[in-house]
Amino acid sequence: MIVRIGSFRSRHDRAVVLIAFWLLLALLGPLCSSYDLGAIGSQPVFSGPSPAHLLGTDYLGRDTLARLLNGIRHTVLLCFASTVLSCSIGTFLGIAAVTARPWVEALTGRLADGFLSIPSLLFALLVIAVFGTSTTALIVTMGVIYTPGAYRTSRALAQRIARLDFVTVARARGESTTYIILQEILPNMAGPMITDVGLRFIYSVLLLSNLSFLGIGVQPPEVDLGSMVRENMLGMAYGSPAMIVPVIVIAVLTVGINLALDSSGGRR
């Protein structure tokens, strides 16, 4: 098992590089475009690619590329934030469940089971119905939704590592719980946890895109990849890039990370 953690490192590296690339694009991309986002151009709507508008225009005649770069920003940053949230809380609770007193595990385990018995999209709908679609609400909602999954993964990992002999020996030596967590358990969890982070990032991209597509995610005038598809649905009839390109970008984003992780696991 342990040997595997080492030998699969390259796979994690690839996923990390990919996510870093998307983050960079999200942060810098919008700066590269000279178009004003909100400005409704004099251009015809759903025009094809031209030198002025490399990806044509959208349903209001705005520059698709500029909108797209902004959409990527929203999708990637929102999902990244919620993934960081869910994975850090999940990992913390997972390790706590293994190292703290038994009732902590009993309680967190029950809570996770409970949350997991609500389908993720449903949970999102429920929360959004009450708290609305502000950016914070979206991030927190998605963070909460994927915390139980991250908790389970990290708990299983920590449990496996905590049973290994080197942890036993450290405990027999009288090392503190903090030392054992930081020095013995965490470093060996890092690799597999990166896979989990990658997966959860993909899940949040899928969820957010679905929500926005349904009109209850990112709201105009802001835009993300899902809402961009929604806005430009009519462009489908003309094969407009405004509708097709965001679909392709979502696919490249998620399929790419998934391929890097080459996970065979299911969606949760």
Partner: peptide
């Protein structure tokens, strides 16, 4: 267990 007795990292 010789395989698990040392911290692999």
């Amino acid at each position: 267990n010789a395989d698990s007795v040392l911290n692999p990292s």
